[in-house]
């Protein structure tokens, strides 16, 4: 029994050592930029353009101003949206049915992303 636990200790220590050795010996592997990475990048860029185009609309800018957000500021900060935020915003914009209420909702989302930044909860718009 005692021997068994002693053995276990040796084995686990040896394993641990082996693993940490592997970790240390693995240099940061240089590699090509993969096709997946390029595709993801392109997808982000398309979504960024969609959000920019949305913020360029006169009715959207009017709604932003009504909420005390400078439209030019909002446009500048699209660059720092994360991929997830971009995806959620552009999806909302894509599926936006005609009507005031829905438009207000998406603008609300944009404003929330900006407010959370000011509050220090997120770090989407570092310039604020």
């Amino acid at each position: 029994m005692k021997l068994n636990s002693y053995l276990r200790k040796i084995v686990s220590t040896a394993l641990l050592a082996a693993f940490s050795l592997v970790c240390i010996q693995m240099p940061a592997m240089a590699d090509i930029v993969s096709t997946d990475q390029i595709a993801t990048e392109q997808r982000n860029e398309i979504q960024r353009d969609a959000v920019r185009g949305f913020l360029d609309r006169a009715d959207v800018q009017a709604q932003l101003e009504a909420r005390g957000v400078d439209a030019a500021d909002a446009l500048k900060r699209v660059d720092s949206l994360t991929a997830t935020e971009l995806a959620s915003l552009s999806e909302q914009i894509d599926t936006l049915p005609a009507g005031e209420g829905a438009l207000g909702f998406v603008i609300g989302l944009i404003v929330i992303f900006m407010l959370l930044d000011i509050a220090g909860v997120t770090d989407v718009f570092p310039a604020i």
Binding site: P27, A28, M29, A30, D31, V33, Q37, E41
Partner: peptide, 14 residues
């Protein structure tokens, strides 16, 4: 650009 960390790694290993 977006993958500048990868470029740095490539240069370092070379």
């Amino acid at each position: 650009g977006s993958f500048s960390e990868d470029y740095r790694k490539t240069l370092d290993s070379i």
